[in-house]
Write a protein that binds this DNA or RNA. Sequence first.
DNA 1: CTCAGCCCGTGCAATAACGCACAGAATCGC
DNA 2: GCGATTCTGTGCGTTATTGCACGGGCTGAG
Lengths: 294, 294
Amino acid sequence: MDNWDEIRTAYQVARVGTVSGAADVLGVHHATVIRHIDALEKRLGTKLFQRHSRGYTATEAGHDLLSVAQATDDQFIQLAGRIKGRGESVSGELIVTSIAGISDLLTPVMLSFQEKWPDVRVRLLTDMRIFRLDYGEAHVAIRAGDAQEEQDNVVQPLVRIRTGLYAARSYVERFGLPASEADFDGHRFVSADLTTTRAPFHRWLRTAVQPDQIAYSATEPAALEQAVIAGAGIGFIPAFRAEGTPNLVQILPPRDDWESPLRLVTHVDLHRTRKVQAFVSHLKESAKDWKLCR
Amino acid sequence: MDNWDEIRTAYQVARVGTVSGAADVLGVHHATVIRHIDALEKRLGTKLFQRHSRGYTATEAGHDLLSVAQATDDQFIQLAGRIKGRGESVSGELIVTSIAGISDLLTPVMLSFQEKWPDVRVRLLTDMRIFRLDYGEAHVAIRAGDAQEEQDNVVQPLVRIRTGLYAARSYVERFGLPASEADFDGHRFVSADLTTTRAPFHRWLRTAVQPDQIAYSATEPAALEQAVIAGAGIGFIPAFRAEGTPNLVQILPPRDDWESPLRLVTHVDLHRTRKVQAFVSHLKESAKDWKLCR
DNA sequence: CTCAGCCCGTGCAATAACGCACAGAATCGC
DNA sequence: GCGATTCTGTGCGTTATTGCACGGGCTGAG
């Protein structure tokens, strides 16, 4: 059953009853309607209409087509309404992907957004691999660093996360408190695998300490944080997280060159839609209240 | 939502995931697919797909279209199957229209036909006006006389109904029994309006008797028959009906030039279908058993 | 790193679809 | 009964759609 347009033509003929009338409705010449009907009947091998001087009347097959195409027409009209309205409405799914380790910041934002727009189903994806906006894997991405983005992505800076060096109180009691960067000899450190991170503070650490001083490494930020809290070594923790955590001692305060700039990225096709715009503005508004960032 | 073909194209793209793949399925060039998508998105004002190097992935709107068009495709396939199979199957409605007054003959035929093909719903239409086959008002028509049929009608002779002149026994007791055609003076006759009948025996009667001898006239054959039986006058009754009716006296036996040839008429478009063929052959077979016809 | 394979996108030529005009036929109203 | 109207059907010229070929980009394997 190729050529749905011919079905649509036959539908109008069955509905109106005349070729001329259907042609008017369809906005084409009546000769076109005749040719569509002829072609469709030839392909089906059955007469859809009885031709007579007052018009076309549908046969049984024509009536069957009429009812099916009627339903189709209704559904397409509803579909068009939904699609056209979708750009205007804030509803459906909103998929946000972000770097790991900032879910404390994001989760309240997502929840308040969903509270504001109850028709939206929110999904937050965090994974090692980078989700591709141009594959439609997410509507909004929150990424770190200055990495080059793809062509069609709209990038805007969000906040800069301040990160400091911390250690657990239990670690300090056991290994002592280094006075400064020059006093790091003999200390143990917790860091991410260099293969999976491009965070500036981790890169800095690799230059500041010996490789064998990295006592513990992991890929997941939460795992690193847990390791520091457990006393495995000195490690980087975002200031906003360290402040709320007891038993953490600041070794070195946040430095500007450790700061990780967060970028808010959307695909250009989705950037214009009201749903994405709503979330973007909501996120930027919420980010103003984030402490210990800038 | 004009242009259903573009929806069909978009449906295949959403299903397959690539323009090239959809083009293969649709049997068109991939450039055509791209143009269809572009046109459809432009008309809807919404992106249906995210374009990337590995193909097209559907957006939310695209997924919506996919599910709607999927259902449409299924329904169209089923529709095509029904329509193509309809010509082969003996089912659905079968509308027969006939001249009034032969329902005794037809009803058993219709009933046995329905018994033979239980999926058929049979309708018998008899009315003063002639139902038009080319308007699709009936599949089969049984008509009388030699009237010219329209262009696309298939005509085949059925039987010739023998008609005689009869009177009720009560009439004969009151007015006497005419010995022959020459003895009609003073007798009363029952006849159809000349405006509504072209039956040869009625026309003959108008020449054989004086107009004021027509004591009773009607349009409906059953009404005429009832009038004759009630003793209103001498009238024509088909031999097959008169034989089974008590209290009827034959005035004149059937004559060849009174015979009314019945024609079996079908529209050329429907004549080929198996359903109509089945009924036509069933009717002709049954007609062989009709008594007092030839 | 390079090459092969598989996508998408666009200018240009061919082709199929379309609109136009006219003819024929039937119906409606006067 | 007869013109007026309406509808279908077809040949012809035009337009729009399609197919083709080529270029470019991305991906994944060797």
